[in-house]
Amino acid sequence: MTLLRLFARDFRANGLYLATSLGILFVMSTGLAYGVLGEPPQGYDDQWVLADSIEMLLYLSMIIVSTKLASILFFKIDEMNDVQGTFASLPVARNEIVKARYMSSLVQVLVVLGVHLLAILPAALIRGGLDHIGLKLVYHPAVWIISFVLVLLSNSFSFPVYFRFGLTRGLAVFTVIQVLMLVTTIALLVNFVDNDSFFRAVEQLIKWVAAQNAFLLLSAIIGGTLLIMAGSATLSIKLYNTKDL
């Protein structure tokens, strides 16, 4: 019960922040989706053609980054208002504070991904209607599963640090790491734009993955991610339980 109350207070206390940030996100997302839906990508043949579209790449990273940011919004607001001690002094156990934060962040991730999904619709309408061919591309489940999994993995690695050192210090470290990773990935991709064999290999991999039982595959990926998250929560509880607030 206390767990649910703690979970609920994140949304209850920060409803306005939440609504505002989601609104802004919706508009931004629509803008980027508009860009992605511009022209059907060259050589579009019902295949997964991520590599052919830089816009798609930008769009995907925007989804990941914004979802990640939204999922740490509650940390940020708590730290801004210095409420950690206040909540720890209520009749709650610290491990519940940690668990509730993992829960609310998970819900935040789902909500933000939902906003992105919806934000595509107005873009499609402007671009010529809901039968726009590009919709098939952006609504490809892989886009959303990859975003979901990446954000959760990122949170799993970073949350223990936030709980131990606070968001500001923790975020500094992780932003550097994540930006480096992103830059490396983009640099690699850009370098390989003309390299057929690389993309063939990627396409091969994707095809192989796509050939597997979709349900089993999805379960394995999401299950694994949630397992990592549970491990991360256990670590966070350990760290937060002995933290001086």
């Binding site: 207070r9 206390a13 920060n14 801004m80 208002n81 409420v83 001690g85 206040t86 209520l90 009749p91």
Partner: peptide, 21 residues
Amino acid sequence: TPGYYQHLNLRQLKNVVSPFY
């Protein structure tokens, strides 16, 4: 120095705190 959500008013803050008791 009580740490409370500064963007809330007292009624909203009370609604956040009271369910814990």
